[in-house]
Write a protein that binds this DNA or RNA. Structure first.
Lengths: 193, 193
DNA sequence: CTGTAATTTCAGAAATATCTGAAAATCCAG
DNA sequence: CTGGATTTTCAGATATTTCTGAAATTACAG
């Protein structure tokens, strides 16, 4: 690998991480190289930096494009394509989550819904469906939270994340302020925390 | 596979999903079988249900135990071990995230920190470090948010997630209420959302 | 068009990961 | 202890994934 030591360590680590998350090691390395590059790179730049075959790079780039993770730029008078990652790292993470959701979470939800529609033929199936229902509801809760938060501008998102669980105090405050005399209070009145 | 059709579909789907997330297909299937089982199962029950070898089950269970995802129960007068998943699916997800963080996110953060300590030997290394810094800060923001939210009781967590981005309105309200006369307002005054 | 540079495709090679059966180790009742 | 039941280990077999080089395709300047 012909990159400076710091870059090499980064690239190797992300190749490793990629492979633990179901992304082929080389594809992870290609993305890492593009992520830290100073300028857009063409396929042969990547071949040179990673020391892998041209065809492997071609396939890796195609894979990354199918995940919407790359931008390309043409240089006039140069027939080659140059690739780079989005400048905004938040945009990268949003895309990654969106794609993963589209490919894995959404299909899982539909499988679960389909299985929950069927009438159980036995006690064990009935129980299995109960568990699937719990899983379905949890996934739905998480994805609808995500769909909602996904819409926020990055600045707002950071504000929200920075607050962490202190947000709960703000919530309590709101509840207290808006508790109508005789109105219904939260199902979970202050436990001290 | 000797399980009712609904269960089989579930198990196959989760084997598939597991393998897309860097978990071996069989390990995913073993967990799926345990997750929907009516009672704790011993290794041979799993062999029977999945139609795989005894040694494969043994290795799969060991793997799942190393992730803290299993509970075991002994039945008196029976030498075999019986395995089951936690009843509380939120507990399962919390464990999964914790372990994944411990194994992948934490090591990544230390690699990034170590690389950011080094003095750059070239402009390209300097730029690479800038990108690594962005990544480091984002991962840190996300993990500290998670560490914080992780502490909430499940009921509170659900309340928070259900609120989704409506939480931002509550935040704005808080800001408005506490805006001291002449005090500093939010850096991002209401854009109408 | 034509010729050359660039990219993609894909069959088979190489590398990894997974799975199995047999043997070894462990466990515990008697 | 002993012996059978159970679990674990691990070398090699099998299956899967990844990678490569060669050939095919595409793109476009002249």
């Amino acid at each position: 690998m012909s990159v400076p030591p710091v870059c090499e360590a980064f690239v190797l680590h992300f190749g490793e991480m990629g492979s633990r998350w179901g992304i082929n090691r080389t594809v992870g390395q290609i993305y890492a190289v593009l992520f830290i590059a100073e300028r857009p790179l063409c396929a042969d730049d990547i071949v040179e930096r990673l020391g892998i075959s041209r065809s492997n790079v071609s396939m890796g780039l195609k894979e990354l494009q199918s995940w919407n993770l790359l931008r390309q730029r043409s240089i006039s008078g140069d027939r080659r394509e140059f690739f780079h990652t989005p400048d905004d790292i938040y945009a990268i993470v949003r895309t990654l989550v969106d794609e993963r959701k589209k490919r894995e979470i959404d299909p899982t939800l539909s499988v679960l819904r389909e299985l929950l529609m069927r009438s159980p033929e036995s006690e064990s199936e009935r129980h299995a469906q109960e568990r699937m229902r719990e899983m379905h509801d949890l996934i739905e809760l998480l994805t609808s939270w995500y769909a909602d938060v996904q819409k926020l501008e990055t600045e707002r998102l950071i504000q929200l994340l920075s607050l962490g669980s202190r947000i709960v105090k703000v919530l309590d405050m709101k509840d207290r302020l808006f508790a109508l005399p005789g109105g219904k209070r939260s199902a979970n009145p202050d436990k001290g925390n």
